[in-house]
């Protein structure tokens, strides 16, 4: 019981499933404008994959993949992407303008204008934010024990 994390069975299954969960999350984000889903649900799935890693292998392994500093920067970057896309509309005259052409062709990936870009920003923000909140709760508990 010296090793951090859960038993071998859990670790093996998590090792296989994490990448699939991540891929599914990315799919939900990227196809958000065409199928049910979008930035928020996709981001939650991606964040959940990291939380799963953290639960199965212990927080050190998860923090090696994504440190708190980089989580904090990516979190802000997600929000800034969203805001940046909104501000880009000014070039064409209006805040939040959907400026890309070829809108509204069914079943094609890039036909929703700026919505996929916004979804990517939201997905990044939500996934990292969820992971960050989880890590914060984990670290907070440890800090309290030392007192």
């Amino acid at each position: 019981m010296n090793k951090p994390g859960m038993t071998l069975i859990v670790k093996t299954i998590v090792r296989i499933s994490t990448s699939l969960i991540l891929l599914y999350g990315v799919y939900i984000v990227a196809y958000g404008q065409l199928t049910p889903g979008g930035g928020f649900p996709g981001g939650v799935i991606i964040g959940a994959a990291f939380i799963l890693l953290c639960l199965a292998f212990g927080k050190e392994v998860a923090l090696k993949k994504m440190s708190t500093a980089s989580a904090s920067i990516l979190d802000s970057a997600g929000a800034l992407i969203f805001l940046g896309v909104a501000l880009l509309g000014y070039i064409w005259g209006t805040f939040f303008l959907n400026f890309f052409p070829n809108k509204g062709i069914p079943f094609h990936l890039w036909t929703a204008g700026i919505i996929p870009l916004c979804n990517i920003g939201i997905g990044l923000k939500v996934s990292v934010c969820l992971f960050g909140a989880f890590i914060a709760l984990v670290l907070f508990r440890v800090a309290k024990k030392e007192n």
């Binding site: 904090s72 920067i73 802000s76 970057a77 800034l80 805001l83 805040f95 939040f96």
Partner: peptide, 23 residues
Amino acid sequence: MQIIPLFIAVPLGAAFILAMLGK
């Protein structure tokens, strides 16, 4: 009046840039 959304966009952008500048 193109400046109206800036009342919201500027502090929002500043908030996230400041959050990145932690150190």
